[in-house]
Simulated scan of single mutants.
Amino acid sequence: MSAPTAAPSTVRADTAPPGPAARRVRPPRWLDLRLVLGVLLVLGSVLVGARVVTAADATVPVWSAAGDLAAGTVLSEADLVPVAVRLDDVAEAYLATSTRPAGRVLARAVRGGELLPRSVLEEPGDLVQLALPVQAGYVPPGLDRGQVVDVYAVADPVVGGSAPTGGGVDVVVAGAPVQAVTGRGDGVLSTATSTVQVVVAVPAEDAADVLASIRGRGLVVVVRNSVEAPPDTGGATADRSDAPAGAAPDGPVG
């Protein structure tokens, strides 16, 4: 009797070996290291760019001289021009436009366009402004405020009148800065005998001696070399490279 044969095994067609488990895609997190590094790089670039732009436009408004001014000149608003310049670490040594130096006296001569350092100013002291009447023919044509003059009294009937009380030629004012020149006419009606008023600054204690030494004589004004070359340690002037782009350095800042 033969042994029973085993029934053949059957495999279900719908049964398959298990595959790898599906991975869920996670949304990006705010604390992702790459995202944080990217944000930091962008912020760093913005800050560096802002510092570069600020450094390139680090100008300050300061006062400069409107023209050549002699030592001893009492400053007025018309003598000052605001300019924007780049001074870096020496900005404190110059007069910012927030200051009001009008009424102060120049301790040394300055040239037109020169930046005004704080050290160039001094208190007016006992200076007074003395008005001297001078015939137009004895005043240099280019005489202007800020120049240094000597004033002579001369015994000339044409200059001093028909009966001068004194004789000779005397220096009545020496090395005085001119504060103003008025009464000078350039028209066809102006003549050499018209009177020009020359205002000079002199110490108060000398004013009476100046008037007494004139003694009715006529006056002649002689102009000195008013402005010397500035020293090497000072005398900075507004330079076109110091001004911000598109702005003239020798013009007003506002």
Rank of each mutant, 00 (worst) to 15 (best):
L127P: 00
T193D: 11
A16D: 08
D126M: 09
A13P: 12
T5L: 04
A71V: 02
P124D: 07
D170C: 01
G167I: 01
E205N: 13
G251I: 02
S194V: 11
G146T: 09
V90R: 11
V222C: 01
T237Q: 05
P82F: 07
P203K: 08
P61L: 13
A66F: 03
R23E: 05
L189E: 14
R51L: 14
V85N: 12
G175I: 06
I214W: 07
A16Y: 07
W30L: 10
A192N: 06
S241F: 09
A248N: 08
L211P: 00
G167Y: 09
D32I: 08
L143T: 06
V220W: 08
V11C: 05
P101W: 08
W63K: 11
V148G: 05
A109K: 02
G216A: 02
D170T: 04
R184E: 05
V48K: 01
V48A: 10
L40F: 11
D57F: 03
S190A: 15
D79H: 13
S190E: 15
S2E: 10
P124F: 06
A207I: 10
V158P: 01
V169A: 15
D239I: 01
G185Y: 03
A243C: 09
V46Y: 09
L127G: 14
P82Y: 06
A153Y: 01
V85S: 13
S119R: 10
A229L: 08
G146E: 01
D206V: 10
T73G: 02
R29E: 14
R111H: 11
V139F: 05
P249V: 15
V90W: 05
G67K: 05
G67Y: 00
V110W: 03
R224Q: 11
A96C: 03
D250I: 03
D79M: 04
R240N: 09
V169L: 14
G185N: 11
V181W: 04
P8S: 09
V227D: 04
T99I: 00
L47K: 01
